[in-house]
Design a binder for these strands. Structure first.
Lengths: 115, 115
DNA sequence: CTAAGAGATCGATGGCTGTCGATGTGTGTG
DNA sequence: CACACACATCGACAGCCATCGATCTCTTAG
């Protein structure tokens, strides 16, 4: 079986309102939306995406929530595995960067072509 | 407490990449994304949105899946309560219609303003 | 009124997931 | 080497959710 990157999994599809989504496409897209569908992950992604330089250090993200460090690490992993965040280790610190391509692909899929 | 419609809950927010999403906003938006984040519901919404006239009868939707009638009814209810589908009963049949406003609002939230 | 059909609701169940404390791994410091 | 620190992983637990069969509600036909 060929494994697609998350971005490839979404870029394949025309907007929801244009033609019925196939079962295969729906099963590829749903995990990305699932990764987004959590208040903490939404805020994490927004923090990273809106941060200066488009990237943020985990050390800063931990302090932004009243949650344990493992929990934040878990959410970042989910976003990373969904293709929404890129991960880079620099020395002791880890930086996450938002994937504009993945977000744009999702937005295109959801957007209403009639409006 | 003031209760917002789902569309109002999302229309309030600027794109994720523009500024950090507040906790309150994230908790309002996440349920809509959660409603979308299921393969069956994605296909249901796409079937309705892409259907002729922008609406579809439940009787047709049931036959499009190998799932029980209560399960389809459950998924339609979730999409309806999230504000993504409007519901109208005509005689014995029930028709669902997609809410372009809700989808557009979500797409704007997710879209990357830098691209 | 009775019967039939469309669709919603209910109750149960197995699987998934957000959260935590404890621990592991890798990196820089002395 | 020993220690401190940043972050990931592990195991456990409680709450949520997709699914189903059974049942209920409502509308139309006869």
């Amino acid at each position: 079986m060929l494994t697609l990157t998350p971005v490839e999994a979404v870029a394949c599809c025309s907007p929801l309102s244009r033609e019925p989504l196939s079962r295969e496409a729906a099963e590829r897209v749903a995990p990305m939306l699932k990764a987004l569908a959590d208040p903490v992950r939404l805020r994490l992604l927004s923090l990273v995406a809106s941060h200066e330089g488009g990237e943020a250090c985990v050390c800063d993200l931990n302090d932004a929530f009243e949650l344990s460090q493992p929990t934040i690490s878990h959410h970042l992993k989910v976003l990373h595995e969904a293709g929404l965040l890129d991960r880079e280790k620099r020395g002791v610190w880890v930086y996450y960067r938002s994937s504009g391509a993945a977000l744009s692909a999702l937005a295109t899929l959801i957007s209403d072509p009639a409006s």
